[in-house]
Amino acid sequence: MRPEVFKMIDRVVSIDPSLNKIHCQGLVPQESSIFEGHFPGHPIMPGVLLIEAMAQSTGWLILARNRFEKMPFLATVKEGKLRTFVVPGQNLDLYSEILHEGSGFVVARTQGSIDGKLICSAELTFRVLPWPEGKMKAVVMKVAEHVSFPLTEFVDA
């Protein structure tokens, strides 16, 4: 996990064959610039980054469902709950499940846990659109390799 550059997922652990569920992991780094002000002497991961981690987990699932032909953009966060502090060195397990898809939108339930204990959850809505012009798709494909995303299963040659 490199929260200072918004790379919150270290590994895609599994994707359900039906493409409805995903499990990802991110190890909260021991040191990061985000902890300098949040908070001195008591570093905790900002809640907005927990939401970003849940969104990225769901994003990988949406990319798989669309065979990387379209890109998800976070549109809405509902029922966001942050239950406890997340500190450096903890391993965050992220789970997302698609609830609804249609008209260019995807709604998912997502949650994060540490050692099996629920620490955050939300219902997220994404707008799914064509890739913007430029190198964004190539950058995402490179990140996919880094997080052990099974590209050969989801990208047409």
Rank of each mutant, 00 (worst) to 15 (best):
P3F: 10
V5Y: 13
F6V: 13
M8I: 12
R11H: 11
R11D: 03
I15D: 12
S18H: 10
L19Q: 07
N20L: 14
N20A: 11
K21W: 13
I22G: 05
H23Y: 04
C24V: 05
V28N: 03
V28Y: 02
P29S: 09
E31Q: 15
S33K: 14
G37N: 10
G37W: 07
G37C: 10
F39G: 06
P40K: 07
H42F: 14
M45Q: 00
M45R: 00
G47A: 01
L49P: 00
L50N: 13
I51G: 08
A55D: 03
S57I: 05
T58W: 08
G59A: 11
R65G: 14
R67C: 11
R67W: 15
F68W: 08
E69V: 06
K70R: 13
K70F: 06
P72W: 12
L74T: 12
V77K: 10
V77C: 08
V77Q: 01
V77P: 02
K78I: 06
E79V: 11
L82K: 05
T84V: 14
V87Y: 03
P88H: 04
G89W: 05
G89T: 01
N91Q: 12
N91L: 13
Y95M: 15
Y95C: 07
Y95W: 13
I98C: 14
I98T: 11
L99P: 03
H100M: 06
E101G: 02
E101L: 08
S103F: 07
S103A: 15
G104F: 03
G112M: 07
G116D: 01
E123S: 07
R127T: 06
V128E: 03
L129D: 03
P130M: 01
P130W: 07
W131I: 04
W131D: 07
P132S: 12
V139W: 00
K142W: 05
E145R: 09
E145S: 13
S148R: 08
S148G: 10
L151N: 07
